[in-house]
Design a protein around this nucleic acid. Structure first.
Lengths: 120, 120
DNA sequence: CGGGATCCGCTGAGATACTG
DNA sequence: CAGTATCTCAGCGGATCCCG
């Protein structure tokens, strides 16, 4: 099924209203660290420390708050194991995987074009 | 051509490095107002005042700076007509349209899921 | 009409230190 | 190891004034 940009846009027209729930979720997943964390998790389950290292430049505070937001949105699942030392694992939920299937082509395109865009 | 998530991710792996150009562009287009402005322009050319009204909640300052950034990135074209009163029009460049072809499915998916996600 | 320039208050990002 | 608490400061948003 082929859908024109105009058709798609019409269906998402509500995005332009203030307080629209779509804007809220959009702000979560399109946030600076949100994308990178989700991207890291597309590759599989990650521990806190792994994410901290893999997503270079993220502060502990932002990583914590990003993960909490994405978990509340039902996109990321948090599993903590009652061990010593403590171990906590993060993974995409099915919903999160659905999302990333749509986000990856975008990221891939940007990654391919970015150097050219920036160099001007 | 079908590409697995793992393959795509491998090609965009550099995103995780600090200072990666992809991160910069990503920050521009995934910014709160960046998405909404680009979204408004997918529907066609817009004048300043139209954007101001259509993208509810954006301040003049943020609209100006968002448009300037997107123009510098080569995603949005600005055309000013030497008339009285002045008229300025913004539109997507071919590059911008390529981008939006990848961004729309994502936005549409979020728009469809958002209410459910937020209500928890 | 379509902005640019400036000041200013406030939020939220980032670094650092500390804890279960 | 996996966070929380605290502090600081940059950046966003608002208001205002101005110009082409």
């Amino acid at each position: 099924m082929v859908v024109s940009l105009a058709e798609i846009r019409e269906r998402s027209g509500e995005v332009f209203m203030e307080g629209c729930p779509t804007r809220v979720v959009l702000d979560h997943i399109m946030s600076k660290w949100g994308v990178l964390v989700l991207l890291a998790l597309t590759d599989g389950t990650r521990r806190w420390g792994e994410l901290r290292r893999e997503v270079q430049g993220v502060s502990e505070k932002m990583l914590a708050s990003t993960l909490r937001t994405l978990e509340a949105d039902g996109l990321v699942a948090r599993t903590s194991y009652p061990e010593v030392p403590p171990r906590v694992e993060y993974a995409l939920t099915p919903l999160g995987e659905e999302l990333m299937e749509r986000m990856m082509p975008l990221v891939e395109w940007v990654a391919a074009r970015a150097s050219g865009i920036i160099s001007r």
